[in-house]
């Protein structure tokens, strides 16, 4: 459904490289996640695929639904739904007016496509007279998704749709994406939440304009090559600093109620526990653990 081959995009006469030869493909009915730091080129890529930005000419190629992103931009706009990272609906139009507006742009009506959006639009319909600008963050996301869906797109392009959204609404949002996928809609989504990567069929880890890994979430964690332990105890911030001082500890990061550390091969958990005990950290638990996507991301 999406084919990207050696795509480049530079800004400021080539001085800033936003995309540096990105290649990947997304099959119909996939939820393909793009994970990467700010400045990795995620938004640039999504805007090119949405035909809103032209890639560097003469280098690489991208198609969506078989249409070329430069030549066939009119057709592409018919078959995609795009949700930009920044809320870009009309703040002074009501919820209902925004939705009608987008339906009209695509020569369709809200009624015709109500079955597709009712799960999500139903939740904000009680507030349909409210100005879009006066909605809470979670409601704005739901309206933006409804507007992106109202013309029954084949491909949804969602740029960080859940940034600023609370954990309960986030879970609902992803349940919704799962149902859209079952209807055969292809979804390309970027996120800064690592737990969401596990809900994708495949993910790409992006850095500095390149995709450095593309695989299923399981495949990404399977390829992790470090020795990874969790450490749990009292005085967690001080513990983190102490861990970093131990020569065999390569990296140490806070992970909620635990710390995750990577260590040189050959040292044992007992050695580390003894070291910590000798430095005033009694009752510390050190255990080997399986990596999460976030561990893989931090090891990039």
């Amino acid at each position: 459904m999406i084919q990207v081959n050696e795509l480049h995009k530079t800004y400021r006469n080539g001085r800033v490289k936003a995309l540096n030869g990105v290649s990947f493909s997304v099959d119909k009915g996939e939820i393909f996640g793009v994970i990467g730091p700010d400045g990795a080129g995620k938004s640039t890529l999504f805007r090119i695929l949405a035909s809103l930005l032209i890639p560097d000419p003469g280098r690489g190629k991208a198609t969506v639904g078989g249409y070329d992103v430069i030549r066939d931009y009119r057709q592409i706009r018919q078959i995609i739904g795009y949700m930009p990272g920044r809320f870009s609906l009309y703040q002074d139009l009501s919820v209902e007016e925004n939705l009608k507006f987008f339906a009209t742009l695509f020569n369709t009506t809200v009624e015709e496509n109500y079955s597709l959006i009712k799960d999500i639009y139903g939740q904000i319909e009680p507030f349909k007279k409210r100005r879009a600008g006066a909605l809470s963050g979670g409601m704005k996301q739901k309206l933006a998704l409804s507007c992106a869906l109202v013309h029954r797109p084949k491909v949804l392009i969602l740029d960080e749709p859940t940034t600023g959204v609370d954990p309960v609404s986030r879970r609902e949002f992803w349940d919704m994406l799962g149902r859209l996928r079952e209807l055969g809609i292809t979804i390309l989504v970027s996120t800064a939440y690592m737990d969401e990567a596990d809900r994708c069929t495949r993910v790409a880890l992006a850095r500095e304009g390149e995709f450095i890994a593309i695989d299923t979430p399981k495949g990404i964690t399977r390829d992790y090559s470090e020795v990874l332990w969790s450490v749990e105890g009292d005085r967690m911030p001080a513990l983190l600093n102490r861990l970093r001082e131990y020569p065999s500890v390569k990296t140490a990061f806070a992970f909620g109620d635990k710390h995750h550390i990577t260590v040189e091969k050959g040292i044992t958990t007992e050695e580390l526990e003894n070291y910590l005990a000798n430095n005033g950290f009694k009752e510390t638990r050190v255990e080997p653990i399986e990596p999460t996507i976030e561990d893989c991301f931090l090891a990039m």
Partner: peptide, 20 residues
Amino acid sequence: DEPTGGVDPAMRRQFWEMIY
């Protein structure tokens, strides 16, 4: 107020070390 919204995991951790 949501200082780390949309910030990637590595930067978020650096931000929290500044908070500490």
